[in-house]
């Protein structure tokens, strides 16, 4: 097991280094540099070129690319993420400020889609071929076909504007800070964000359950005279659930992707919304850091999934 972990880490670390290098290279390719971002465009033309050069030297921009990359990455490792171009706020502060909102939304959506998806998938598998199964399949298809933000818009129109049950958007009102105060704000974005994932989990749970139900131990349990519901729940569902849980780790990119747009629709003050406005205002340092951290999140999630599968299934860690 230890050698397996070591082997996985050995492939992970070079990957992170290469990706961080590529992201830094991407920043290098963008128009302008730190100096041209610091000085207003209309003043830039009238500045003395020697002074600009001096400024560049003092900021270390004259150094070769590889050296600058080294300075940047060692700063990042030590927790110095640089500064946002908009207002010069430290990026670490932005992360600390916005991350809780994004995590709250993502975990809510993850929870809803896992529970709902595996229950619906199981029902669909147990009633295979019936009208319920076909209906659920079509509903699942609708779930992956309708754009999430369109769901969001319709939900806002119906539940916030027409029925006035839930707030239109935002996360908290000033003065109301507890989780229960902002629960009404969380309901719609979390439900909308979970739709696409629920459909995915449902599909997966259905085939996984069908697979489990065709195994020998199910037949044995039935032949012992066990009631049908006990066979399904105790033996089928439990076995079918393991791969579904593994699937959730792979769903992380979908979740991050969805939250970028959903946060915009519901004005949810998370990382995704910050990322979109950074791309809009060409705030490259911030764009870069968010990209780097989302890659880290995905890689670490897939590492955890791999380790979990290795623990469950010894063939994974021994074979290759």
């Amino acid at each position: 097991m230890l050698t397996y972990i070591a082997r996985r880490l050995l492939t992970l670390i070079p990957m992170v280094i290469v990706i961080s290098f590529l992201i830094y290279l991407g920043l290098e390719l963008t128009p302008g540099d730190a100096v041209s971002h610091m000085i207003p465009p209309d003043a830039y033309g009238s500045m003395d070129p020697d002074r600009l050069q001096e400024l560049r030297e003092s900021l270390g921009l004259g150094k070769p690319f590889a050296v600058r990359y080294w300075i940047w990455i060692s700063g990042v490792v030590q927790g110095d993420f640089g500064y946002s171009l908009a207002g010069g706020v430290p990026i670490a502060d932005i992360f600390l400020d916005r991350l809780p909102a994004t995590l709250e939304l993502s975990f809510a959506a993850l929870l809803i889609s896992t529970i709902l998806g595996s229950i619906l998938g199981t029902i669909s598998a147990l009633t295979r071929g019936s009208a319920t199964d076909q209906g659920l399949t079509v509903v699942g298809m609708l779930g992956v076909s309708i754009p999430e933000f369109f769901f969001g818009l319709v939900a806002i129109l119906v539940f916030a504007i027409n029925l006035d049950w839930l707030p239109v958007g935002g996360r908290t009102l000033p003065g109301y800070d507890s989780f229960w105060d902002r629960l009404p704000n969380l309901v719609m974005p979390a439900l909308v964000l979970s739709i696409m994932m629920t459909a995915g989990v449902m599909r997966y749970a259905r085939s996984s359950m069908l697979d489990a139900l065709s195994r020998d131990f199910i037949r044995t349990a039935r032949s012992k005279g066990m009631p049908e519901w006990r066979v399904n729940i105790l033996h089928g569902f439990r076995v079918a659930l393991t791969p579904v849980i593994v699937l959730i780790g792979f769903r992380l990119p979908v979740l991050i992707g969805g939250s970028v747009i959903i946060e915009q629709v519901f004005q949810w003050p998370g990382i995704g919304k910050e990322f979109v406005s950074a791309v809009r205002s060409q705030d490259y340092p911030l764009v870069m850091m968010v990209a780097l951290f989302s890659v880290l999140a995905v890689l670490i999630a897939s590492l955890i999934v791999d380790l979990l599968t290795a623990i469950i299934d010894p063939r994974v860690r021994l074979g290759e």
Binding site: M15, V18, I19, L22, I23, G26, L27, L29, T30, L252, P253, V254, I256, G257, V260, I261, F275, V276, A278, V279, Q282, Y284, V287, M288, V290, A291, S294, V295, V298, L299, S302
Partner: peptide, 18 residues
Amino acid sequence: EIFMSFPQIILVLLLVAI
């Protein structure tokens, strides 16, 4: 592998920015 370790929309937006 490098391309696929980005969440798709983050990579797309990163490239749009560049």
